[in-house]
Design a protein around this nucleic acid. Structure first.
Ligand SMILES: [Mn+2]
Ligand SMILES: [Mn+2]
Ligand SMILES: [Zn+2]
Ligand SMILES: [Zn+2]
Lengths: 146, 146
DNA sequence: TATACTATTGATAATGAATATCAATACCAA
DNA sequence: TTGGTATTGATATTCATTATCAATAGTATA
């Protein structure tokens, strides 16, 4: 099943309704491979569907998150962002502080080390987030002058 | 030089003034080994010094952060927290989602792997943050029933 | 010491994102 | 149909953070 199907299943399973607004919001979200704030998603949605309210977008994002097709990411810039979760394996982020360009990173070795650290302290890991901030190739060239 | 000295040096270097309020706030902050929100620090400060304003605490935290004796941490709970930086090597966090108990973790091997990942993508690392959320020994026992 | 200048303070206002409220409307099952 | 509930969009509220501002305190200079 695809992301949309998973969302539909979740909504139905909760006894909620399948509405055009939700469908439109989910479509726009799934068509955008970015880390969006609610405001940004709202703006995108409004480009196509003029009458949808901000609150409806906000509520749809909440539902998408609960359904597992959406994940909240927090880069510490003061607003929460959301990205696709379904079909995207767990990953962490490498973000350019200058232009915002990011790479989704993953290392099995690194994940294993994390798990070992957790175990060493007697904890049980539920989830983690790792964000690395730096300069992308282009920006590091510019900053260093050439 | 200690943390307080570093703060004083930074303040002086910027042509700013050494005030009693700043001294009081810095003292309280340095005496508390926690990850504090501004509100929490404000409450602590007010216990001893009744007349200090919230804005003054907020501004002092900003100064402490700039001076390098304080670091902002963000656990995604909606408000920013601050911890000692001076004399605390770089570390990441392992946090219990149930009771909030945390451990400051560090692994040279893990840091090296992070650096390798960054280099592989042509980025230059400036800083990173890694927060692992889970259950502490006590809480994992409780949750599993024994 | 008097004076002018600037930094600082504390109260309060403004901001901005997230969330709650609410009346109107849409949907569903009987 | 009809009654009950979910949903919507507009708006209000909340909450943390940041900005504003008049009053005050500190500093340098004469
Ligand atoms: Mn991502
Ligand atoms: Mn810490
Ligand atoms: Zn860049
Ligand atoms: Zn715990």
């Amino acid at each position: 099943m695809d992301a949309k199907g998973k969302f539909g299943q979740y909504v139905a399973g909760k006894g909620l309704r399948h509405t055009v607004q939700r469908e439109q919001i989910v479509d726009i979200f799934l068509a955008t491979e970015k880390h969006l704030t609610i405001q940004e998603l709202y703006d995108l949605v409004r480009k196509k569907y003029k009458s949808i309210g901000y609150a409806t977008v906000s509520r749809a994002v909440k539902l998408m998150t609960e359904s597992g097709i959406c994940r909240r990411v927090d880069f510490g810039d003061g607003s929460q962002r959301f990205e696709h979760k379904f079909g995207h394996e767990h990953h962490d982020h490498l973000i350019c502080v200058r232009c915002g360009k990011f790479v989704e990173i993953y290392s099995k070795r690194l994940e294993k080390l994390q798990e070992q650290l957790v175990t060493k302290h007697g904890y049980v890991q539920l989830y983690h987030k790792m964000d690395i901030f730096g300069l992308c190739p282009k920006c590091s060239k510019k900053v260093r002058g050439r």
